[in-house]
Each structure stands twice: as C-alpha cells, then as structure tokens.
Design a protein around this nucleic acid. Structure first.
Length: 372
DNA sequence: TAAGAGAAACGTACCGCCCT
DNA sequence: AGGGCGGTACGTTTCTCTTA
C-alpha cells in the first residue's frame, strides 16, 4: 500500500465525504476477488484494493510534518488508511459477522490524531469499509461504509476490550534448546510450591478442571519425566482436532493419568490444566499467544491457595512447523519466563461486535453508507 | 542504502458459556 | 434454541533492525 496513506489529512474537513466514497466504490461491485483462505492475506488484499480505488484520484491534502501528533504509541489503533481515516474489513459467509476492532474503543472520543490547529480525529471518526465477497462466485457483491455510532445504534454496543499477551522466543533460544541432549529446558517450581508438591507419582485424585491443591501438584521435575520426555518426537496431529493446542493438552493429560473428557478439554479456562496449575502451549512461530493472563505481571489465579501467574507452570512445546513434530520443550514456572524470553511490551486488545449476515444480505449489489 | 532477518502486529475463524 | 459475548488459535503481513 502506498506510503502516502500513512500521513493524516491536513484537516478532518479535508476527508472525502461518505457520499463521494459511495460513488468511488461503486466500481467494485461485481469485480472479481478470489479468497486465498489465509485470513491475514485476504484482509491485506482487501485493504490494498480499497487503497487503489482511493488513490485513483487525488487524495486529501496531507498534513505537514510537525503540525499534528499521532496520539497512540506506535500508532496503535489508528486506521491503516490514515489519510482517509478508513479501516477495511472483509465479510464472507456464515450466519453472522464478528467485527473485531483492534487497539481502540471504536465508538469513543479517544484522540487518535491531534492537530496544532486544535482540530482532532478521534476513534468515532473512523469510517469502517466492509467489502462483502460472494465466495461461490469469487466476486465483490456489496460495499458498506459505516460509522461506529451507526454500528452501535443499529447492532448494539461493542463488547469489552479483551487483551492478548504475547511472548517471543527467539530462534537463538529455540536452537539452544534443540541442541540440548534431552531437548528440554526446565526450571524448578516457585518457592511457594516447592516445599509441598509431589515428587513421586500418585494417580490424580480429582478431575483436571478442579481447583488445584498444592499438596497434590506434581513437581516440574516429575512432569518432565512423565510428560516432557515422552512428548519429544511426538507428532501433533492437527488434522484430527484442527487444534494442536488441544491435541497437546490431551496428550499431557493422558500421560499424567487424567481421564480426558472432551468438554473439559474445550473449556477455555486458565490455566489449561487447572488441577495441575499447568498451562500448555504449542509454538512453531516465534510468537507464543499467552491469552488474557500473562506472568509478566503477578496476578491471582487461585485465590484459595494464594497461587498466582508466577506459580503457574508453563509447558511450551516447540514444534517443527513442517512436520508438526515436537522437537523441544520448555517447562518453567511463570516467574522465570520473563528472564528467558521477552514479552511483547505493550499488549494489544480488541473490541468485538457481531453483525447478523442478514444485514449484509439486504444490500446485495450496492454500495451504501449508514443505510436507513 | 538495499536486502535480508528477525520481531511485532493483528485479521479472521471458531468455540463454549450465558442470557433471552 | 439461538445469538451475543468473551475468549483462544493460528499464521501471515508488515514493521524494524542488522548487516554487508
């Protein structure tokens, strides 16, 4: 996408008005667009397509450097097509569309661009451009230009922001683990746990989703022997579950002697195996998605036993992306993770709003702005 | 300064629980 | 039963840093 789009317009008044955008986008209707199935790629292609339409004529005049300030750090939450204050979304099939807005509260008046003139562009000024694809014909069937206020008025408020923490394991660290004899990098349990937990195996007394009791937790050393060593070289069959995280969780549970129930497996609590205060993660890219909880900051996990994210044991399986075979394992209490790997500094969050597909169906073949 | 490598960002699918 | 909501998974794009 043209770098020009990154510069905001000289003034909010310079933005192309929505009526004109409707005209512009009308050329897209019926145009061929083939979905690759790679979500990130498709989203990017849609953005490029919209950008190409916008730059087919004169863009709004750019703001001069130094006359404005981009408020959020690293321009997080600022619409990608900043010059026109447009974000693009791709709508395909299904019964409802899950609109996910990243790193800003969509309908708020939070500042995104602050001009020296005193003017500003805010979250609620962003224009949402939805491109609806008819997947059976691989064509664009309609385009919607909607404002956050309209979306909230019509479909309800956006959900609460949900945070996602990430951890990075560099290829250097990964290779160091691969080069070890047993392919396992492990650390002792936190002090709080170490005095009480089990070092010798006894079959579990309770179900995997039940609150843990310190005295019945298996030590990291024991987990290493019973689980980690056996997992090395195993293949995570992604086809079977479509979800390798669950495949790993299942294998771990079986190795520990827990009865595996499908429902329990799908229960997305924290940590995954609550009864063992154990979180299992699969990683083949450098990024590990930690979800809502992160041991970057100490947070209470089990109130009754005073256990925190620092005590949670993380089992991270390093897989070969080509073969899906586990080639290394990290076993560490949360408190140590930060010493070994780096946290993504500021977390990202998103706000969601589902929109029934019937809404998009109503305007087939048209380009509309805040219809009705 | 350009290319390549590494780090970071984030778009979309999908899932289960909860409420109506 | 069905939709809304909170949440996770996945993996590519894109930004940024490093190196030649």
């Amino acid at each position: 996408m043209n770098k020009e789009f990154k510069t905001p317009p000289i003034s909010p008044k310079a933005l192309t008005d929505e009526k004109e955008l409707v005209e512009l986008f009308s050329s897209l209707i019926g145009k061929q667009f083939t979905i690759t199935g790679k979500t990130r790629t498709d989203g990017s292609n849609i953005r490029k397509l919209i950008a190409s339409i916008l730059e087919s004529r004169d863009l709004p005049e750019p703001a001069q450097l130094g006359q404005f300030e981009i408020v959020p750090p690293k321009r997080k939450g600022v619409p990608k097509i900043t010059r026109e204050f447009v974000d693009t979304y791709i709508v395909t099939s299904g019964t409802s569309y899950n609109l996910q807005v990243w790193n800003r509260i969509p309908a708020s008046n939070m500042l995104l661009i602050k001009y020296d003139s005193g003017e500003s562009l805010q979250c609620d000024d962003v224009r949402f451009v939805f491109v609806r694809i008819d997947v059976s014909k691989s064509i664009i069937s309609s385009v919607f230009i909607l404002t956050p206020a309209y979306i909230e008025a019509k479909f309800g408020k956006f959900g609460k922001p949900t945070i996602k923490h990430q951890l990075l394991i560099s290829s250097k660290a990964r290779n160091e683990i691969y080069s070890r004899e047993d392919k396992i990098l492990s650390f002792p349990d936190s002090k709080k746990l170490s005095y009480h937990i089990l070092h010798d195996y006894n079959p579990p007394k309770s179900g995997m989703v039940e609150e843990p009791v310190i005295r019945e937790l298996y030590s990291i050393g024991l987990i290493k022997e019973m689980v980690a060593k056996k997992l090395i070289g195993q293949k995570l069959d992604a086809a079977a579950t479509k979800n390798r995280g669950q495949a790993l969780e299942r294998m771990t549970l079986e190795l520990l002697g827990y009865k595996v129930q499908e429902n329990d497996l799908l229960f997305g609590g924290f940590p995954d195996i609550k009864n063992q205060l154990l979180e299992v993660k699969v990683q083949d890219s450098p990024t590990v998605d930690l979800g809502k909880f992160s041991p970057e900051n100490e947070e209470m996990v089990v109130e009754s036993e005073n256990l925190t994210t620092f005590d949670v044991r993380y089992l991270i399986a390093l897989t070969n992306p080509n073969t899906e075979i586990i080639e290394g394992i990290i076993l560490s209490p949360g408190e140590k993770l930060g010493e070994l790997f780096s946290y993504v500094s500021d977390q990202s969050y998103k706000c969601q709003r589902s929109i029934p597909m019937s809404f998009f169906d109503k305007y087939n073949g048209r380009v509309v702005f805040n219809p009705e």
